[in-house]
C-alpha cells in the first residue's frame, strides 16, 4: 500500500506563498481545465485555490511568535468527504491514496465540502464542480519530466524546503522518518480522519551555558595549585607567540 502525502515543516515556512502561486499556475494550466479567478487585481478578488497559507500570531505581545500555516487537502486515510458523495465523483485511489474528484461526474452539490472539517474543498464557481488538491497527480507520474521534477508543484516551488513529499506508508521513506523523528503531527485528530499530510512543529534551538562552564572548574593542575609553568593569569605561550 502506498499513501502519498506532504509533510509541511512549520519551523522553516516563511509564508512567502510561492506554493500557493505555483499550485495555481500548474493546476489552472492543466488538462482538468482552469481554476476560476475573478477580479484578481480588482476590489474583491476571489477564486479557487487548492492551497492557501494563513498566518497566526501565537502568544501575547511582546512574547509573540508568527506562524505561517499552509493548508491543502490532507488526503485523509479515512476521508469523511468521500463516502458522502452521492455520485461517486469523489474517490480515493487505491494505488496511492490520493483523493480526487472526477469533474465529469461531479454535480456540484457541495455536500463533500460540508463533510470536510478542514475546509480544503472549494467549488469552482465558474465550472460548478468541486475542486481540491490532486497532489499534482498529472505531474508526479509524468515520465517525460526529469525524475527530480516528478513532485507536486508546491514542493518544487518552496524556497525553504518546508514541503516534503513521499509515501507515509513506507516506514523507511524520507518523510516517514522525518515525521517520526521530528515530531510530525496531524490536524484535528479528534475526528478520526487520519490525515496523511503531517506538520512538523516549530522548534526552538536553546543553548544554556552554566557559569562553571565558562571556566574549567575541574582542571586537575589548578586543584593541586600547580600552574603549568607560569602563574595561571600570566601571559601564556600562546599569547607570546600569537603573531
Amino acid at each position: 500500500m502506498t499513501q502519498l502525502a506532504l509533510v509541511i515543516d512549520l519551523n522553516v515556512c516563511v509564508g512567502c506563498h510561492a506554493c500557493v502561486t505555483s499550485c495555481k499556475e500548474w493546476n489552472t494550466s492543466g488538462p482538468a481545465g482552469s481554476m476560476c479567478d475573478d477580479n484578481p487585481y480588482g476590489k474583491d478578488p476571489t477564486g479557487t485555490f487548492f492551497n492557501r497559507v494563513q498566518t497566526y500570531e501565537i502568544g501575547e505581545f511582546p512574547n509573540t511568535e508568527t506562524l505561517h500555516f499552509p493548508k491543502s487537502c490532507l488526503h485523509c486515510e479515512d476521508p469523511p468527504c468521500v463516502p458522502v458523495c452521492p455520485t461517486g465523483a469523489s474517490y480515493k485511489r487505491k494505488e496511492d491514496g490520493i483523493i480526487l474528484v472526477d469533474y465529469d461526474k461531479c454535480i456540484g452539490c457541495r455536500y463533500c465540502s460540508w463533510a470536510c472539517p478542514y475546509g480544503v474543498r472549494e467549488i469552482d464557481e465558474h465550472l460548478k464542480v468541486m475542486k481540491k488538491c490532486t497532489l499534482c497527480v498529472d505531474r508526479i507520474y509524468d515520465e517525460t519530466l526529469p525524475e527530480a521534477e516528478r513532485k507536486p508543484a508546491c514542493v518544487l516551488a518552496c524556497p525553504t524546503s518546508a514541503r516534503l513529499f513521499g509515501d507515509v506508508h513506507d516506514p523507511e521513506s524520507a518523510i516517514s522518518v522525518t515525521i517520526r523523528e521530528e515530531g510530525g503531527y496531524q490536524l484535528m485528530p479528534e475526528w478520526g480522519t487520519h490525515p496523511s499530510n503531517h506538520y512538523l512543529p516549530r522548534r526552538k534551538t536553546h543553548q544554556h551555558i552554566h557559569e562553571d562552564e565558562l571556566q574549567r572548574a575541574d582542571n586537575p593542575l589548578k586543584k593541586e595549585q600547580r600552574g603549568p609553568s607560569t602563574p595561571i593569569d600570566a601571559p601564556t605561550l600562546d599569547d607570546s607567540t600569537s603573531w
Binding site: N39, P45, F49, R52, I58, E60, T66, S113
Partner: peptide
C-alpha cells in the same frame, strides 16, 4: 497555546 490570533487568512477578498 491558549492565545492564538489569526493575522491573515491568506488572501485579500473572500472565497468559497
Amino acid at each position: 497555546h491558549s492565545r492564538i490570533q489569526q493575522k491573515s487568512m491568506g488572501f485579500m477578498g473572500g472565497s468559497v
